[in-house]
């Protein structure tokens, strides 16, 4: 992987949710990565390494589309990484809604890659509130932990399912 590809990968993947991005007047709380908290390059390299040969090509094509999107979407000969966060996000949003299926689908693959990087960060994952805290289990979790469900007899169900 050459230096340019690495730089593009960092610029583009971080563009989905830039660290310290301005809130643009939106009063809602946001999940914002802290500077240096997320390793986007690790996720990109991991997907290239573990994906199929074709998906590796697809990732690189998608990255090229995104990195050069200031030029081919807006006609501005500007480096993607030099744009402010909201402009990078707007360009990626346009790619996600591109009428050519492959462009939209491959950009979605980049978004998934960015998500893998974001939630690999323990700090960001904790702030997302996705996980039910072990110290504060939901009522169901507490109940389940104390009563192990037993194998019950299978009921009569619909359309050919288990009927014993």
């Amino acid at each position: 992987m050459i230096g340019l590809e690495r730089r593009w990968a960092k610029d583009v993947l971080s563009g989905f949710a830039a660290a310290g991005d301005s809130d643009q007047g939106d009063p809602r709380p946001r999940l914002v990565p802290q500077p240096g908290e997320v390793n986007f390059l690790e996720a990109y390299e991991g997907m290239i390494h573990n994906g199929t040969f074709l998906s590796g090509i697809g990732m690189r094509v998608a990255l090229t589309f995104a990195a050069l999107s200031p030029l081919w979407l807006t006609g501005r000969p500007t480096r993607f990484g030099s744009l402010p966060g909201d402009e990078r996000a707007a360009l990626l949003d346009r790619l996600l809604h591109h009428p050519v299926f492959l462009v939209a689908e491959l950009t979605l693959l980049l978004k998934l890659c960015a998500c893998m990087a974001l939630f690999r960060s323990a700090g960001l994952r904790a702030r997302s509130k996705y996980d039910v805290s072990e110290g504060d289990p939901s009522p169901e979790a507490a109940e389940t932990g104390s009563t192990r469900p037993e194998a019950n007899r299978l009921p009569v169900l619909h359309e050919g399912q288990v009927t014993r």
Partner: peptide, 18 residues
């Protein structure tokens, strides 16, 4: 998160409610 619509600040607001 990848299925939630948007990018940038709009997406970050949705991520805060996972």
């Amino acid at each position: 998160a990848a299925r939630l619509p948007g990018t940038g600040a709009r997406w970050q607001a949705r991520l805060a409610e996972l």
